[in-house]
Design a protein around this nucleic acid. Structure first.
Length: 572
RNA sequence: CGGGGUAUAGCGCAGUUUGGUAGCGCACUUGUCUGGGGGACAAGUGGUCGCAGGUUCAAAUCCUGCUACUCCGACCA
């Protein structure tokens, strides 16, 4: 490709609304431009990289026995009503009507469509298992798009859906997909980890996320120091403390605490250990519960895990905190003075709270706390559950080592969905006994455009992007100096260019009439992995100048056998 | 959804307090010089100052309403 026939849309200055490095560099290198909040256009350079990612995914999905399909991005509401998600999904689902008033949505995912297809096309267990995938534009009306294409509203996703007669078959394919994902992310050159995950709203059981490790990530990942264990903090189990509950040594003591509305001020004003305090969080109960509200209690220095809390019986999903009015009406005290003693509602305490003794909590009277509380003596031990987030330093749930926490960008997610959709939408085949059975399903996603951004997060320097070989839009840049003036430079460069093209190399020829510094800066910003400078000076000396993108020094190489030299470098 | 910020040339910004008819750097065009790390000089192009009202002799500037973008928060007991 010649620069004169290619849009080089590089920017010297960083647009002011770009926060993270990948967003800044994608704008500066001329890969993307914003069309509206969370909506991006891909310019030629950026699209080349997207296509590279897609090609790798296609190859590995095909190798893993999946079949490519393409489903519509606009989907009829009827299918979503059938699965129940038309009601469930919330405002992220972009809904629209056509000229006849029929309702549609922009597909945030395609379980409904594929399930509908499969249920109409497949009759027998003999046709199973099958795995269909597509690379499609998705739309999610994100509450807050940010970080460029990392969290945009419209994005490209590879999604796959497998169908099975049995759970064993599903587990087999799940493992095949897991392995395929490992291959894909290895080939993409990403530093990533498979991570045990929660299923989220999509439902089902058994799930891994693939996270690219980067400080700009939006998820917290817990790692064991002594094993391969890694889990999203959302789903990492907080083990029950091994030590038993301490004996009561203090008497129950009601104290005036007029200014202590938060744990932090309580700890400060009364000089008590934060581990000897508890937070009592009041949330809405669901319809099955006798009470209007439920109390969730975690230790003062811990955080509630909303997902774990939602799994507790009686807790309304999505988790909703009680309003101030509800607190006054049901408890007679407001937030900041609530605790377990004389609390007239179901209580669930975290495992770590269950072993506490001599602790402090709100008294359910405004501006008063109890200190020296002990379970059973002062108040019956409530139901115990794991409802907190793990913290760095916690023992790993795998039994080995301690947890540390790093940030991750979720670029892949695989689920064992089970029968959630096949039952809701009545997708059945005949089994070997001639009986109708709901199919087991799995689903497997990769954020294509997000993976591009994640790669840049991990591979950049002060001069710009550093593409791994597999993603580079071009393998090598030829940078002739005085291309427009020196016949010799032009002939030499064109010859080399044609040789490299003939060898199947993706070569970029910067034939612009620009000063050298401009060309060098642009080629580096755009992340060209290899660069060859062709100049009169070099030709006279019988050399070209070569520099790899990450090399600290440039080097002169002989003009003899340059093509082979470069091909070796590129394939290195 | 709550709170903050911003909106002036393609990009980055000043001008708004104190109203007087729009400017700087980069980019872009033309020319000359230069020619191995975003070069110099000269001459140019480009703006309904986010939108709609209002006040005023006069509004980028003051007032009202709206919109878009953006950051933080949505864990508080």
């Amino acid at each position: 490709m010649r620069a004169s026939k290619f849009l080089i849309a590089t920017l010297k200055e960083t647009p002011s609304d770009a926060e993270v490095i990948s967003h800044q560099l994608m704008l500066r290198a001329g890969m993307i431009r914003k069309s509206a909040s969370g909506l991006y256009s891909w310019l030629p350079l950026g699209l080349k990289v997207v296509r590279k990612v897609e090609a790798i995914i296609r190859q590995e999905m095909d190798n893993a026995g999946a079949q490519e399909v393409l489903m519509p991005s606009v989907q009829p509401s009827e299918l979503w009503q059938e699965s129940g998600r038309w009601e469930e999904y919330g405002p992220e689902l972009m809904r629209l009507s056509d000229r006849h008033g029929r309702e549609f949505c922009l597909g945030p995912t395609h379980e409904e469509v594929i399930t509908d297809i499969v249920k109409k096309e497949l009759r027998s267990y003999k046709q199973l298992p099958v795995n269909f995938y597509q690379i499609q534009t998705k739309f999610r009306d994100e509450i807050r798009p940010r970080f460029g294409v990392m969290r945009s509203r419209e994005f490209i996703m590879k999604d796959a859906y497998s169908f099975h007669i049995s759970e064993e078959s599903l587990k087999d394919t799940y493992q095949v997909m897991f392995d395929a994902y490992v291959n894909i992310f290895n080939r993409l050159g990403l530093d990533y980890r498979p991570v045990i995950a929660d299923n989220g709203s999509i439902g089902g059981s058994g799930s891994h996320e693939f996270h690219v490790l980067a400080s700009s990530g939006e998820d917290d990942i817990a790692f064991s120091s002594d094993s391969d264990y890694a889990a999203n903090v959302e789903s990492a189990e907080a083990l029950a403390p091994s030590e038993p509950r301490g004996a009561a040594t203090q008497t129950l003591n009601l104290v005036d605490t007029p200014d202590a509305k938060t744990i932090a001020t309580l700890v400060e004003q009364f000089d008590i250990a934060i581990e000897k305090t508890i937070k009592t969080l009041i949330v809405q109960a669901d319809e099955d519960c006798d009470s209007e509200l439920i109390a969730l209690i975690v230790r003062g220095d811990h955080e509630l895990n909303e997902i774990k809390a939602e799994h507790c019986a009686g807790v309304k999903t999505p988790l909703t905190f009680a309003s101030e009015e509800q607190l006054i009406k049901n408890i007679g005290a407001s937030a900041g003075s609530i605790g377990p003693i004389d609390l007239k509602m179901p209580i669930i305490i975290d495992r770590s709270v269950a072993v506490m003794s001599d602790f402090g909590a709100g008294a359910n009277i405004d501006d008063k706390h109890y200190f020296g509380i002990n379970w059973d003596r002062d108040v019956a031990t409530p139901e115990i559950a794991d409802i907190r987030n793990v913290q760095a330093g916690d023992p790993s749930p795998c039994g080995k080592g301690l947890l540390s926490i790093k940030r991750g960008i979720e670029v892949g997610h695989i689920f064992q969905l089970g029968k959630k959709y096949s039952q809701a939408m009545n997708a059945m085949v005949l089994d070997s006994n001639g009986k109708s059975q709901h199919m087991h399903m799995g689903c497997y996603g990769i954020g294509v455009t997000r993976a591009v951004a994640a790669s840049i997060e991990q591979n950049n320097d002060e001069n710009g992007i550093i593409w791994p070989k597999s993603l580079a839009p071009f393998q090598i840049a030829l940078v002739p100096l005085n291309y427009d003036k020196s016949e010799e430079v032009k002939i030499t460069t064109d010859t080399l260019y044609n040789e490299l093209l003939a060898a199947g190399i993706e070569v970029f020829l910067d034939d612009r009439k620009e000063r050298p510094g401009v060309k060098f800066a642009d080629m580096e910003l755009m992340g060209m992995p290899h660069r060859l400078v062709i100049s009169d000076r070099g030709i006279k000396a019988g050399t070209f100048e070569y520099k790899g993108r990450t090399d600290s020094e440039k080097q002169d190489i002989s003009t003899e056998g340059t093509c082979e030299y470069l091909i070796n470098k590129i394939n290195d």
